[in-house]
Design a protein around this nucleic acid. Structure first.
Lengths: 212, 212
DNA sequence: CGTTATTGCTACACAGGTGTAGCAACACAG
DNA sequence: CTGTGTTGCTACACCTGTGTAGCAATAACG
């Protein structure tokens, strides 16, 4: 198209979207950029360009860059909470016929299945892209404390039911949790090399060797 | 001191330092800022101010901000390599009278002692401040691979000497390494709550319960 | 079909950080 | 004590990103 210098090109308008859809689109774009190039690359202009709009459109959906990042983290956190809903069952009763090792392996399997079912969300949490804001660390720490508390109850029950080994329950809980998260990272970083099944088998064999 | 508006205040010159000392001072300041407020706060101006000089002085020691960050990571990496020099001994011979569990606990103790002896350097690595550059992740990954390789040789020997358990050696190595790093983070994040001795005791008891 | 309300765009201003040319100050050597 | 070489400073230019006022375009409603 021939354009004279006297009539500068005006960009065609982007298709209109209702505000809720626009927000969702912007948040998806923000997360994709964070995972691809790091949180520092999540700029107002970068997200606008990724969605084919201009900066005021982003400002129409979010107060500022901080609000955009907060929205992104809200979204990831809500998904994680939903996916972990069934991972930590209530502590079994004294009369319940439940094998503690089976319960733990099931929990680990559920946790890793959640991770592999939504890798992008979990990558933000377990393998945070560079330039991650402090708020991410705060949310991760908060969720981790909740998960540790739930896990500890289960493991204390399991250690009693098993009759040992005689280890510090808090350190044991942290060790199990660290291993589960580490396995999660492994599956995210090497999805073609490791599977949930392999990790579950490893956990089962190791528990079988862990005498009371 | 009374200063007329016609003679603007000129800052007094900072004390002169030979270039090598100035570099060291700037690198120390850069690391302190990174740990206190994140890598994004490590600016040329920020480091200059922390050292009581102006930006050209920083540019006199480092080509640019990237070179400053690289220098900081070089320093941390060199310290880590030095501190880990004795942590991974050569794999014992078939006739060596060495208890594999003792060897592992000694290795974990040496590793955690290195961490607690120079917490600032290890914090950059194990609990990276927000805004960490990609280069940090690359260096950490490279060091981790070297450490995993050394550890795997030792653990394979240990599993053979022990006669089991019958687990995937690579997963077992990763699990042990993940636990050691997790313990390192724990000691960095909660130095008043946990000690190397507690972790070593936990490792010893857990290994004692891990039958072949 | 015209009007209105809503969503998107242009152009502007501002702030923070990078990087440097040329000058200033000072420590050391003769 | 003077001169020189080395280290530090001021002031300037530039770049990238943030944030917004006012206008433009468009979709929906009557």
């Amino acid at each position: 198209m021939l354009v004279t210098s006297a009539s500068p090109v005006k960009r065609p308008y982007a298709a209109r979207l209702p505000p809720a859809e626009r927000r969702e689109q912007l948040l998806e774009a923000a997360q994709a950029i964070a995972l691809d190039r790091g949180f520092h690359a999540v700029t107002i202009d970068g997200v606008a360009k990724a969605c084919g709009v201009t900066r005021p459109v982003v400002y129409g959906a979010f107060e500022d860059r901080t609000a955009l990042l907060t929205g992104m983290l809200d979204r990831a956190e809500q998904r994680v909470i939903l996916q972990l809903a069934g991972v930590f069952p209530p502590v079994p009763g004294a009369d319940d016929d439940v094998d503690p090792d089976d319960l733990l392996v099931q929990g680990i399997t559920a946790y890793l299945t959640a991770i592999t079912s939504d890798p992008d969300t979990w990558r933000v949490i377990l393998v945070p892209p560079e330039g991650a804001p402090p708020e991410l660390a705060e949310r991760v720490a908060r969720q981790r404390r909740l998960q540790l508390r739930a896990l500890r109850g289960l493991l204390e029950w399991g250690l009693r039911r098993r009759g040992g080994p005689d280890v510090d329950a808090e350190l044991f809980t942290r060790a199990v949790f660290t291993l589960a998260e580490g396995a999660g990272r492994l599956l995210l970083e090497h999805p073609d090399r490791w599977t949930v099944e392999q990790v579950a088998r490893f956990a089962r064999v190791t528990l079988a060797s862990l005498h009371p």
